[in-house]
Write a protein that binds this DNA or RNA. Sequence first.
DNA 1: CCGTATCCTTGAAGATACTG
DNA 2: CAGTATCTTCAAGGATACGG
Lengths: 93, 93
Amino acid sequence: MSRWGVLVLLALSEGTLRWGELRREVDGISEKMLASTLRTLEADGIVVRTSYPEVPPRVEYSLSPLGEELMQRMLPLVGWVAEHAEGIVEQQA
Amino acid sequence: MSRWGVLVLLALSEGTLRWGELRREVDGISEKMLASTLRTLEADGIVVRTSYPEVPPRVEYSLSPLGEELMQRMLPLVGWVAEHAEGIVEQQA
DNA sequence: CCGTATCCTTGAAGATACTG
DNA sequence: CAGTATCTTCAAGGATACGG
């Protein structure tokens, strides 16, 4: 799971989101990458996709129980990296 | 940091290792990837490289304090993934 | 023993356009 | 709204050979 996977999961860890919301939430992701990322995460059983047979179509994505477990372990790491990323980049100079 | 980065850090989280030991410990890594992975991790301040001016040359790699902090947050995640990876792959079928 | 240098392949990811 | 299709680019990574 790549950079985009983490960002998508991060967005979903705050609650269920629709396709369009995810596109806006995950900054800079292309439609192609969002689609393939979501398909992978769904195949892995980490994300649940629910589509409502309406017009216009509505599709919601949320974390599965497995996904919740995963994020519980991933959030501390992501937080730490976010805090230290700046310092790490600086130090390289 | 890629797959190799994680595996190298995982090996080093059990203690200091020499170049040759890392090559054997991290299964399947090429010399090129080990070199570039170590250079990146060192530049990031996560790994410390110590070379002893001896003949034959001896070089040791270990986690920096920053690296220790990082691994403290990464180990639970890695453990969880290791436990669930099999089930996730199965479920895809 | 501890790497560096080079060439090459392959897959990730961006851009763009289109559809049920 | 929620995607798919196609084309292209670019860098990660493998293979191999060599050097201090």
